[in-house]
Design a protein around this nucleic acid. Structure first.
Length: 241
DNA sequence: AATCATGGCAACCGCACCACG
DNA sequence: TCGTGGTGCGGTTGCCATGAT
């Protein structure tokens, strides 16, 4: 179902991820955070480009990701959000706890579009989608306006991701990545709040997966699993003695 | 049983944005 | 102000699974 693994001309591995690679990446990020995606694969002992690592982490390995079946509520929410936001999958995914933008996007293309096509009441949505395809897409700012999203939202999102190179503690790094993932969240969203809340203690406590409420949540490998990592470079403030 | 068509999804690619020097 | 590097996003592709013929 996935691309066959191969080595590109730069010697970087591409295509499907092996279980071993997954474990290495997962273990490294959980231990050190993603302080720099570009450098990370080197330190984690992976022959992958940083982008590939990031994608794998965000879409597959990230803790709390749900896999598989969408509830009717989720489907309806995606349709509603797509009507408001257009193809801004990351924003839509941000409102769906445990879903990645890629997954939502795929789900839309494979299932919901069909469902909407069969539902004549949804012509408005179809029109908007096709307009975007044919270049009649709203200006990004227009979309933001119609969806009640201000530029400050996206700025705010960027600011949520602190500059890790500035010697931020690893725990903060990890937290920031999670917070950032629920981007464009609106403070009134109880769903969003509960998601953030449920992970608040995640980085401050040993990772114990509570999948009792959701069997779709990915299980993590045992923490005792050992990999040989290079520690991330230490960022020592040398401006003063 | 074999072949073909379609669905589904992981992963890649290119672009845009932002921070920083 | 400009160039560069890092990151995130959306569109697209590749390939396996499954169903239809």
């Amino acid at each position: 179902m996935v691309r066959s693994p191969y080595i590109d001309k730069k010697g970087l591995k591409k295509g499907a991820w092996s279980e071993d690679e997954d474990n290495k990446l997962r273990a490294y990020v959980l231990r050190y955070g993603h302080w720099n995606w570009r450098q990370l694969p080197k330190f984690a002992g992976l022959s992958r480009c940083g982008k590939s690592c990031r994608l794998r982490w965000m879409n597959y390995l990230r803790p709390g990701l749900k896999r598989g079946n969408y509830t009717v509520e989720e489907e309806d929410l995606i349709i509603k959000l797509h009507e408001q936001l257009g193809n801004r999958w990351s924003a839509i995914a941000g409102k769906l706890p445990g879903r990645s933008d890629n997954e939502v996007k795929n789900f839309w293309h494979t299932r919901l579009r069909k469902r909407i096509n069969q539902d004549p009441r949804s012509t408005k949505i179809i029109k908007q989608t096709s307009d975007q395809k044919t270049g009649h897409m709203h200006d990004a700012n227009q979309i933001k306006l119609s969806a009640g999203i201000s530029d400050s939202d996206s700025n705010e999102k960027r600011e949520m991701e602190p500059n890790i190179a500035a010697a931020a503690p690893v725990a903060d790094t990890k937290m920031s990545s999670l917070i950032c993932d629920s981007s464009l969240s609106d403070s009134n969203s109880s769903v969003e709040y509960s998601f953030a809340e449920s992970f608040e203690s995640f980085w401050t406590q040993p990772f114990i997966l509570d999948a009792s409420h959701n069997s779709n949540v990915l299980a993590l490998p045992p923490m005792e699993e050992e990999f040989t990592f290079l520690s991330p470079p230490m960022f020592i403030y040398d401006g003063m003695d």
